[in-house]
Amino acid sequence: MTETPLFGDGYWDTSLEVADALRAEATAHRATLPNQIRVWVIGHYAHARAALADPRLSKDIGGLTAIIRGQLAETGQADALSNMFSPHMLFNDDPAHARLRGLLTAKFTRARVQALKPRVEQLTDTLLEVLPRDRPIDLIDRVAFPLPLTVICELLGIPTEERGPLRDWTAALMEDLPERTLPASRAMEQYFTELIAAKRTTPGDDLLSALIQVAGDEDRLAPGELMGTLFLLFVAGHETSTNMIGNSVRWLLQDPQRWRLLGQRPELVPGAVEELLRFDSPVRMATHRFTTEPVDVGGVLIPAGELVLVSLQSANRDSARFPGGDQLDLHRDASGHLSFGHGIHYCLGAPLGRMEAELALGGLTRRFPGARLAVDEADLKRRHSAIMNGYVDLPLLLGR
């Protein structure tokens, strides 16, 4: 058995190695999250892909919250949950999921995403052109976080002067610690309540206004659905891209030749982004599911009424699907990776995330061919989140 348990003290900075080791031991593992919630974790590619589309693994918000609250009560904890556990499309099964996703996709169109590209290019150039070359910078703080945050805020119509506390709130929401998640959730809910009210009074040319301003008898999001959807759009809309950019830069800089290659051959960047997504997924685990009946996962029987997490990080490195999966190969065909999910819950924001990562990596490798880590690799620390997978900071030196 591997010496480092899932979600234990030594897990976060070694999660890739732990995932590789656990795949050799069993197809599914029992684990306990930092908030004492018990889960099963599926890590092999074939089983993970099947689980993501298996209707017996439900994402119904009522069933999920009942199980989680029951476990919290068993351990003597308060059963309050953050607004991430809301009736949005990610925590619903069909047909409710199809309705909620349809209402969002009608407004969050491919054309709307493509129309953002000139602005994302402009933002990227603005962030990169002021980076110093003669002293260390934190790439997360200077590029990987502000780029997707600005994009999602502009998409949703969040005013510039109101964005200050949003980073800390969203970071806290991902930590699985009630003393952090619940105050952050309440603060964000209060802010979004005021934002929604302002958009009802004075709508703008933004996605949130479009979701609110629905004509006549046309179907619309109920108040609770709107709040949940706003939480989902905002958090998923920048946390994943921040991790995607940070993780990619970290691994590219492990080999200066790889870094320089992308700067010299920008046509390789889109394929490299897919391989980097596969190699170190920005989402560690797909969000919670529960078994509606016993489910056999490669010979391991998960009983009914159990919470299940699908390890995208582990599945993407499974050599049964990607030979030499624990190796980064920028020339690999990484299509089929699960970093954006699979099935009906496939990430709606995948095109935007890819665009942000491609522009950021293309700009960084082209402008700073001599970039390197400013600390030893062993000093890099991952955030403690069961769902999100990224670095706390990423110190770089950009000059030669």
Rank of each mutant, 00 (worst) to 15 (best):
D138M: 03
R142K: 10
F91I: 12
F91Y: 15
A80E: 15
R110I: 15
P148A: 09
P136Y: 07
H97W: 09
L139S: 10
R135N: 05
L149T: 13
T75P: 00
R112L: 14
R163N: 08
L147F: 04
G76A: 04
P159K: 08
R112A: 14
V130H: 07
L104I: 15
P148I: 11
L72C: 12
T105P: 01
A144E: 09
D138I: 03
L103Y: 04
T150S: 02
R101Q: 11
L90P: 06
T75R: 14
V113K: 12
N92I: 00
R112W: 08
E154D: 06
V130D: 08
A144Q: 09
F108D: 13
K107D: 10
G76S: 08
V113N: 13
A78Q: 12
L123D: 01
Q122V: 00
E154N: 02
A111H: 13
I152A: 10
A73L: 08
L116S: 04
P132N: 07
I137P: 11
L131K: 05
Q122P: 00
M89W: 14
E129Y: 00
K107N: 13
P132Y: 05
H88R: 04
L139A: 14
L90D: 10
A78T: 12
L116F: 04
T109R: 11
T124W: 01
N92K: 15
T124M: 01
A111L: 10
T109K: 12
R119C: 07
T109N: 10
D94A: 13
H88C: 07
T124L: 01
G164I: 10
M89T: 09
P146I: 12
L139W: 09
I137H: 10
L147G: 05
P146A: 12
D138A: 05
L116C: 05
Q77N: 07
P159Y: 07
R99I: 03
F85W: 10
L104F: 08
V143L: 14
L149E: 10
V151M: 05
L123Y: 02
A96D: 14
F91S: 13
R110A: 15
P118V: 13
R112G: 08
I140F: 07
T160V: 14
P136K: 08
T105S: 14
I152Q: 07
S86T: 13
V130L: 00
D134N: 08
K117W: 01
L127V: 09
L139K: 09
R110S: 15
P132W: 06
V130Y: 00
E162Q: 15
Q114E: 15
E121P: 00
L81S: 03
E161Y: 06
A106W: 01
V151N: 01
L90G: 10
R142P: 00
H97G: 11
D138W: 03
D138V: 05
Q77I: 00
L139I: 14
L156D: 04
I152V: 15
L104W: 04
A115L: 07
E154L: 02
A144L: 10
